Amino acid sequence: MSTKKQKSTTILTSQEQYQSCPRANLLRRLGAYIYNLLAVIALLMLATVIALVVVVIAEALSIIDTSAYPDVAGYLSNSLIFASYLAAVIIIFFAYFWSTARPNAWYESLAFTSAK
């Protein structure tokens, strides 16, 4: 009878896997900051378009009056509600993606592929 040598693999917890990952260098961090900045800019553009549509519809239904402003964008630029809305969009974006992020997901995939 032959005995097979089995590899002993230790299973690390998520915290141990996270701590064993190498730290990101400056270029990676700057890349992540630029990526987040571009994502937030795109999201703010979308949120602004939604706000513009809502104001145009509200003006057509005579809910609000924008006659004191040159256009709808002028009305929004002087609105504290609009500024608060954009701030809430930014906060919700980062809160959602930072709370659901899996920083060691790439490490787990490498660990599972190299163990095979």
Rank of each mutant, 00 (worst) to 15 (best):
A73K: 09
A51T: 09
Q17A: 10
A95K: 09
T13F: 04
S8C: 06
M45G: 11
A24R: 07
A73Q: 02
Y107H: 03
A32H: 03
F112Q: 12
P22W: 00
S62M: 07
L30Y: 09
I50Q: 04
W106I: 04
A68E: 15
T100W: 02
Y85A: 07
L44K: 04
Q17H: 01
A87N: 06
R28N: 08
L12S: 13
T113E: 15
S99Y: 11
I50F: 14
D65P: 04
A73R: 10
V89N: 01
Q17G: 05
S79M: 11
F97H: 15
L110A: 04
W106E: 05
A58M: 15
Y35G: 01
A58H: 08
Y96V: 15
A111P: 01
I11L: 14
T9A: 10
I63G: 00
I41W: 02
L30W: 10
L46T: 07
K5Q: 15
M1D: 12
E16T: 08
S114N: 13
T48P: 02
A83K: 15
M45P: 00
T10S: 05
L43R: 05
E108T: 06
T10G: 02
R28H: 03
A60Y: 06
A42S: 12
I63H: 07
I91K: 05
A58Q: 14
R23P: 02
I81P: 00
T10P: 00
F82K: 01
W106D: 08
A101W: 01
Y35E: 03
W106N: 09
Q15S: 15
A24S: 13
V72F: 05
W98M: 07
T100S: 13
Y75P: 11
I41Q: 06
R28K: 03
A60D: 12
Q15Y: 11
N36M: 07
N36S: 10
S99E: 04
P70F: 11
K7C: 12
I81Q: 02
S67N: 10
S84R: 08
